[in-house]
């Protein structure tokens, strides 16, 4: 067989209940290819509570502990402790939560686990709203977006919560963002994270054709444009939150190219998109300045 671009082992099966073109599903498939079968998942209320399939069925070949909406990180902490005490020190416990369960209702448990530096991975697959309940705004919903609770006449005015900054402030050993449009990069980051002890936070942008009012065939394209427009930079934060690395090796594309195909932004005027682009640029510059700053920090072994 010709060598494959990504591992051929499938730990996710067909027949799951995700919508057409679901980014969260791609994210899971890639992540599990990186993580391998010695992985136990903790899934709080989120799309994946449904995607997995109805009892007594599952679409994953790894064990899953479904749990409460706000409890991904704490359940994972307990599960990891339990497995270790049972003598299983090899299995990696990974919480797998949506943006609601991470940015909003689950942030307390996440913060607690991160502060304790629990030996868990935490992946937020971010589809930027409460998609499972029918597209309500979350604190991960980007500025300008329509949702059922931020109707066009009153679209979301506040920017997306900067979860990476929050997590970096917890001094955890590894933080990374990834995109389903770049599976090899995603897999490499999950593999790297897998080998690290302590709390590792992964943030994966997972386009939701249903909630973004997007043609399903464009979901990967949007994930890519989010990166190339710098709306969703691919970064790694290591050395307990102090070293920032930003991926820059791509051809920049306009923010409008990312926003225009998505119905959730359809109401925005060109002027509004311009101002969003300014914000995107500012955030990008902040990232770069952090990267420069961390390069100049004395006393860190790299």
């Amino acid at each position: 067989m010709r060598p494959a671009k990504i591992p051929t082992e499938e730990l996710m099966t067909s027949g799951h209940l995700a919508c057409q073109g679901c980014g969260a599903t791609q994210a899971m498939r890639f992540a599990l290819k990186a993580m391998g079968p010695k992985t136990a998942l903790v899934i709080p209320a989120c799309c994946w509570s449904v995607i997995d399939g109805p009892f007594p069925h599952t679409s994953l070949k790894v064990p899953i502990c479904h749990t409460l909406f706000e409890a991904a990180a704490s359940t994972a902490s307990g599960l990891k402790a339990g497995l270790e005490m049972r003598g299983d020190t090899e299995t990696v416990v990974m919480a797998w939560a949506g943006d609601g369960g991470t940015f909003d209702i689950g942030i307390q448990a996440l913060s607690g686990a991160a502060e304790r530096n629990e030996d868990i991975m935490y992946c937020c697959y971010d589809n930027e709203a409460y998609m499972n309940t029918g597209i309500q705004r979350s604190s991960a919903t980007p500025v300008g977006a329509w949702t059922t609770t931020t109707p066009v006449a009153h679209y979301k005015k506040r920017p997306k919560k900067k979860i990476i900054d929050i997590m970096a402030a917890h001094s955890i050993p590894y933080i990374a963002t990834a995109s389903v449009a770049y599976p090899q990069d995603l897999i490499e980051k999950f593999r790297r994270a897998r080998e690290i002890k302590g709390t590792r936070f992964m943030h994966v942008l997972a386009p939701c054709p249903t909630g973004w009012k997007l043609a399903p065939e464009l979901s990967v394209a949007m994930a890519r444009l989010a990166v190339t427009s710098r709306v969703f930079p691919l970064i790694e934060v290591t050395d307990n939150g102090s070293t920032w690395k930003v991926w820059k090796d791509f051809e920049q594309t306009p923010v409008a190219d990312y926003m225009k195909p998505q119905g959730r932004f359809r109401h925005l005027t060109d002027k509004e998109i311009d101002s969003i682009e300014e914000e995107v640029d500012r955030n990008w510059q902040i990232m770069l300045s952090r990267e420069r700053l961390s390069a100049d920090l004395p006393g860190l072994e790299r």
């Binding site: 502990c65 990180a73 704490s74 359940t75 902490s77 402790a81 339990g82 005490m85 307390q108 502060e115």
Partner: peptide
């Protein structure tokens, strides 16, 4: 006691940590 003591940030997390641990098959 040969146990892990997870000093959580809330009772909600205390009980969910017990849920996780018990799901792993140990006394919590």
């Amino acid at each position: 006691i040969d146990a892990k003591f997870i000093k959580v940030e809330s009772e909600h997390s205390a009980m969910t940590a017990c849920v996780g641990a018990s799901a792993a098959g140990v006394r919590a």
